[in-house]
Amino acid sequence: MKTENNKFAKAEMLIRKPVSEVFEAFVNPQITSKFWFTKGSGKLEENQKTEWTWEMYGFSLTVQTLVLQENKKIVIEWGNPDEITLVEWVFSPLNENETFVSIINSGFHGDSDKIIDQVRNSTEGFTLVLAGAKAYLEHNLQLNLVLDRFPKGLA
């Protein structure tokens, strides 16, 4: 995926686990639900649709997996039908027990203020997802970062 402008969100983090474990954590909803969404309809598969649910917010969305290169890359489309964006994960093994994960969300549409808001929200969200994944995979801790991003009464 090549971004043609600066209208994208980016979050990156080192996770001290083998690339196969980190990749599986983002493909398998039984693991992903420990740090991001609460339920997934199945594992990500190339050219297939999957539903992800955030039960705490009463929200679900369908993602379309465009690219699934084992232990290397995931690319999905997601969002409201009139606001579909791309999300790309790149998994770079640094050694047998360390993986650098880069997430880029691109394809935002709208006026400048709307795009800035989307980029900010996406950057915040994916940073929390990576921090939650790191805590879960490295230390078996569920930090509830996504749940606590919008506490009841403040959302």
Rank of each mutant, 00 (worst) to 15 (best):
M1A: 14
K2I: 13
N5D: 15
N6I: 12
K7A: 14
A9R: 12
K10V: 10
R16V: 07
A25D: 10
V27W: 10
V27D: 04
N28Y: 03
P29V: 05
P29K: 05
I31M: 01
T32A: 15
T32D: 09
S33C: 12
K34R: 15
F35A: 06
F35Y: 13
T38P: 07
S41H: 09
E45W: 00
E45D: 02
E46G: 01
E46V: 09
N47L: 03
N47T: 05
Q48L: 01
K49T: 14
T50D: 01
W54I: 07
W54H: 08
Y57W: 13
F59T: 04
S60D: 04
L61K: 12
V63G: 07
L66Q: 13
L68W: 05
L68T: 04
L68N: 08
V75S: 09
E77Y: 08
W78D: 04
G79L: 03
D82E: 15
I84F: 04
T85I: 08
V87C: 04
V87W: 05
S92R: 10
L94P: 03
L94D: 06
E96T: 12
E96H: 13
E96V: 08
N97S: 13
N97P: 01
T99C: 11
T99K: 03
F100A: 01
V101T: 10
V101A: 03
S112E: 15
Q118M: 02
V119I: 15
R120F: 13
G125S: 11
F126H: 11
F126I: 01
V129F: 04
L130T: 08
A131I: 06
A131M: 09
A133S: 12
K134R: 12
A135N: 07
A135T: 07
Y136L: 01
E138S: 08
E138H: 08
E138C: 06
N140W: 03
L141E: 15
N144Q: 10
N144L: 03
L147T: 09
D148W: 08
L154Q: 14
L154V: 14
